[in-house]
Write a protein that binds this DNA or RNA. Structure first.
Lengths: 205, 205
DNA sequence: TCTCCTTGCTAGCAACGCTAGGGACGAGAA
DNA sequence: TTCTCGTCCCTAGCGTTGCTAGCAAGGAGA
């Protein structure tokens, strides 16, 4: 009976852990959806608690605070971004077609999922970036960027640094446009100019 | 006497308007200094009121709300940025030297005055951008950028759009670095890569 | 001297992120 | 089956935020 009891205890614990993990996913999903629908200002701990049909303190048993919830949303967002970038390169032809497709997919992501994008790259979330401890989804997204940029690195140029610079260009386009500093209408032409600067190839090639 | 009274009224009103304008300047300066010293989170209406030695509601007789105060700080920030950009080009030689100096001055400004920079280009402040109604200091800052970029526009390329794209690159470098997404240490090399892409000249020329 | 209007204050509202403390409920032992 | 203990989650509340209503004081003009 002793061992049976132990097994029962373990199965109960695993069930509880499973339920806890599920609820945690529920929180992140609710935060993401609410942010996408009404912006991060609308994501209050009260509203979020109501959305998942638990009380406020439950959130704090899963996350240290609102910032940690946003960080979790950001990590999930990286997975979606990586998927978008990969999908865009599937039908791209040639190195120029590839970097153009990635640039397009990246800026589209920023415009289509503004709240997600802000959590990932604008707001201050304490996630490790640009270090080996960075979350895997983040590193994968960067890797996709790097693969599209590295063919255009010249002799003696660091591929990673060049990718970061190209990334900065895309990021600037997205944020300045989204905050109203740049008019949306000419985005296509600005994106083309940026890609052209980093991939000085014949667009028809 | 009637006309003397009218003149008296006018002089009293002008004195009051002058004092009001002075107090408004005081508010903006206090907000700017406080933000630079401790970040925008520390700039609360109560704290700001204490700083100018008036009560909270006085702020609202000058500005619609905290956002409007930040917008006013942003406009003043544009003047400083313009001054920095102009100073940097004074000793620059040649078109390449000019765009390199401007890029350096711009990113230095973003790093040296982070709160000011955020009010201008990151936070959502309801200022008209990229329209004729944009504040003059803003247009002047953009003009300085444009002057440094336009020599590198190719045939058929819109100079303003190219400047916006270069600006996006600088902005991306500043914001990604400041939020910890890019390590500070390699900034110089990233900046050099960006400038090189937009001004493909011999650095020695 | 009296009246009115401007001006800036005190006090308070609703909402925020976050936390303390208690009550209910289920698991394990007798 | 009953008792005890530990876990889990909720109610209630703290301190702070941006912003506003309503009143008191003081100067301008008749």
């Amino acid at each position: 009976m002793a061992s049976a009891a132990r097994i029962t205890v373990m199965s109960i614990q695993t069930r509880r852990e499973r339920e806890r993990a599920e609820r945690e996913r529920l929180i992140v999903t609710a935060a993401r959806d609410l942010a996408e629908a009404e912006g991060w200002d609308a994501v209050t701990t009260r509203r979020l608690a109501a959305e998942i049909e638990y009380s406020q303190p439950v959130l704090y048993s899963h996350f240290k605070g609102k910032g940690a919830i946003m960080a979790a949303v950001a990590v999930r967002g990286c997975e979606e971004l990586t998927a978008d970038l990969r999908a865009s390169t599937a039908s791209a032809e040639g190195a120029y077609g590839r970097i153009a497709a990635v640039g397009r997919a990246y800026t589209d992501f920023g415009r289509r999922r503004p709240a997600l994008y802000d959590a990932m790259f604008t707001h201050l979330v304490d996630l490790p970036f640009a270090t080996p401890e960075a979350p895997a989804p983040l590193q994968e997204a960067f890797g996709e960027l790097l693969r599209s940029v590295e063919p255009f690195a010249r002799e003696g140029e660091d591929r990673a640094l060049l990718t970061e610079t190209f990334w900065a260009g895309l990021h600037g386009l997205v944020t300045l446009m989204r905050s109203g500093r740049l008019p949306e209408q000419a985005h296509d032409r600005r994106l083309a100019l940026l890609v052209e600067r980093f991939a000085p190839q014949d667009p028809m090639a």
